[in-house]
Design a protein around this nucleic acid. Sequence first.
DNA 1: TCATGATCTGTAAAGGTTTTCAAGCACCAG
DNA 2: CTGGTGCTTGAAAACCTTTACAGATCATGA
Lengths: 321, 321
Amino acid sequence: MAVTIKDVARAAGVSAATVTRALSKPEVVHPETRDRVQQIAAGLGYHPNRAARGLITGRTGNLGLLVPDLGNPFFPSIVKGVQARAHEADHAVFLADTDEDPAAEAGLVRKLAKQVDGVLLCSPRMAEAELRALAAEVPTVLLYRRIPGVSSVTAEFLDGMRQAVSHLVALGHRRVAYVAGPRSSWANRERMRSLRTVAKQQKLELVETGNVVPQFEGGVSVADRVLAERVTAVIAYNDLVALGLLHRFAARGVAVPGDISVLGFDDIPLAAMVHPALTTVALPKEQAGHAGVDLLIKQQQRERRELPTQLMVRGSTGPAR
Amino acid sequence: MAVTIKDVARAAGVSAATVTRALSKPEVVHPETRDRVQQIAAGLGYHPNRAARGLITGRTGNLGLLVPDLGNPFFPSIVKGVQARAHEADHAVFLADTDEDPAAEAGLVRKLAKQVDGVLLCSPRMAEAELRALAAEVPTVLLYRRIPGVSSVTAEFLDGMRQAVSHLVALGHRRVAYVAGPRSSWANRERMRSLRTVAKQQKLELVETGNVVPQFEGGVSVADRVLAERVTAVIAYNDLVALGLLHRFAARGVAVPGDISVLGFDDIPLAAMVHPALTTVALPKEQAGHAGVDLLIKQQQRERRELPTQLMVRGSTGPAR
DNA sequence: TCATGATCTGTAAAGGTTTTCAAGCACCAG
DNA sequence: CTGGTGCTTGAAAACCTTTACAGATCATGA
């Protein structure tokens, strides 16, 4: 049913080898033959079977991409970026959603491993040792996580935090809360660390609450505790949590930014759509996807790329009360 | 480098055939041999190369999934559903984002075709004839589109619209606007048709505006035109457009639902997070993904499944002014 | 003891492609 | 006319599995 290289060969009156060459190394075959073969291949709608090709070349033209939760709009943006760049490079992408289950991650990767030239692991919660073992089996690029000896794409968290804190300090805030994300998350540890450093530098008093699930509900659940701390501003682990805070504040009649300023992290598309629009530290998402694919395709091992961040000032932050 | 069936065979002192059998048809090999082989395979971390297997069995264990825009939260939800069910059935999924480009769709599918057992086409904008041609080449299931002779999963749009309109009529609305989506979209045509039918039945005066891009910006761009129509309620093509309306209304100081009620379609996660929360017709998303995968895996041709819809009444609709 | 059958295992072919190697051919210089 | 060179092509092997077929072993019943 499917048209194979033999069909083309027969139709063109040449051998399979010539067909392959006409399509992938056009310069080595006689122009006349080449044109005829190409024409016939196109006419028959022939596309090489990539699985068969992969078997012999060792390169499948496929990439694997693991994300923890497509429900968080941060990740679809990354997927979009990966997807776009992979497509440009004529690669297809396998997607797997681990549903925030670290235990499932390694297994999923190993199952994919044979079918791909490499995998992009997005914010994996996996233990470092396991991650390292995995990276030894399959070419791996980490997105938004960094461990020694493995390629990664991250963002300048420290600089992002600095922008955020400077913004708050300039608005007169002296005591702010941080709503922490999952303890096992590298991103959370990194943000926390950056925030502590910057807060100390800028003499900002920090109140840490959490840890919450990195979702809307997490923000809702911690909002009242934040209010009880009598801070004038709150920085959330990510935008989804910030939106949860916003939601609960609105329900309780707490004015934003009048009574309290709210600052997020990620800059998901949503952040600009709500009222008040969320001030947030924008992380490169599609670009991270692009960079990750580039690293993988160029087979660059142990390469680190750190992309810039940008504070997006919107309506949810204002002068301290 | 990768461990193949031969490695296992050698280590176990048996032939490759026995290894295959020990793993996929355990009942036909001697218990003792079977256990030994299985143990060694596990120890070596052997996983059959699915590409090679696919070559001979004709089944790859892969599914293709095409979506128009991951930036619209409606689609990640579907992807999540597909992904989850596919994984249960031990299938991997190829994801492709066409970026709302109908021309790219067919090409993408054809490139994937050889590597998958079937494709899930989500809301394709492709012309019906082309879609039909494609379905003849690859087992195909349409998600949120219906054409004769091709399996599909859709939702009860008509019933959803009836719920929505009844809700508005009960609140005293007599004249409402509909913001239409892309003209080429089947979903838009379907919603439009349902709405017209229901509006006539319930004596609701309908003002049609649009067509807008099915995104936040689309809603923003048409909001003022909607206000100029002096309607007391507006139904948007989808939630993203509704959020755009909400945004622009808030910016202009138009009270929702005080001055105008807003009703969406889809029930994306976002809808419940904004203020006022969006009243919307919930479409099954993850379930649609599940159903689609089931149809594909069971190889059911020309099967139609229509899932129920549910009006979610939230804060954005209220009594007519 | 022999034939029969059941149970278990190995050999070889197949699937679609790429690549290595060698062969065929035309052309040129000697 | 001969040997060499360069271009173009085909045959065959290889990639990793699965499966049809046949062979081997063993026990059973006659």
